[in-house]
Nucleic acid binder design. Structure first.
Lengths: 136, 136
DNA sequence: ATCCTACGATGGACAGAGTCCAAGTCAACC
DNA sequence: GGTTGACTTGGACTCTGTCCATCGTAGGAT
């Protein structure tokens, strides 16, 4: 996690107390937080941090490739710090719980050339939906 | 498309002029309209139709399984009338164009039992992202 | 054909998520 | 310890969607 701070600083990311707190919140074990949840956790350590700053920092972390934006419902985006290990998501349709999963094989192989319409496909997102054990 | 109206009426869907226009707008080309786009198109035929009515009708069509809700960005949901033919989506990261695609094989087979965490998986969404020919 | 009535439509207020901006602050380099 | 330009702030604003009280009407009953 201080790896993260190192990397960011090394890339010329100006280190402010606000950005540090946002990065630390994400690097904790709370996964898939919404921006407001990140803001709430950050505010526990830095009470006057503003929402705009959290949004800015999150957006920059996404651009830097340190965090992935996930939107599994049509509501708030979630921020996934597990950006350096490719994975997909398993979502409970009832309670919204999200788990990282690692399917074998590549879904790209399943898309025939004639179905690509000339696109250069660079990314594939797979969302598995169903009921988790508690909601079943 | 009048198939759609038939089916809806047969299921006891009370047919109002507003609902008819919404259904007809969707039954047009296989595009992926947002609620506001549906509203705009519907309003060309029925100028005083309200946003709330369009949202209501779209929500009911989704519940009836006649239309699928798609959210490929974190922004407005899109409504996909191609609900009776399973398919996935190919999205241009630059201009947002969406195309229906039909991958071979099932990604479910790629999710090992130990990666399912006891979930009962009932639905899988795959989104292929990349650049379309015009944006490349 | 007309009447009834429950279901649907309306539009304006409201809510949630996110963006923008002008003014103030401060991290990093000198 | 200055200087300076990048960062932060908070409030206003946008966009998407929901809610609700009131009004209108589709379709069965007569």
């Amino acid at each position: 996690m201080s790896d993260l701070l190192e990397r960011l600083r090394g890339r010329g990311w100006r280190m402010t107390s606000q950005r540090r707190v946002v990065a630390e919140v994400l690097a904790g074990d709370h996964v898939h937080l919404t921006a407001d949840e990140v803001h709430a956790l950050a505010a526990q350590r830095l009470p006057e941090i503003s929402r705009a700053t959290v949004y800015n920092a999150l957006g920059e972390l996404v651009l830097l490739g340190e965090v992935i934006e996930v939107s599994t419902d049509g509501r708030a985006k979630r921020y996934d710090p597990n950006a350096h290990h490719p994975h997909q998501h398993l979502v409970c349709s009832h309670c919204g719980t999200i788990r990282d999963v690692h399917p074998t094989g590549s879904p790209l192989a399943d898309l025939p050339a004639e179905e690509r319409f000339g696109f250069t496909v660079t990314q594939i997102e797979v969302t598995y939906r169903g009921l988790c054990p508690s909601c079943a």
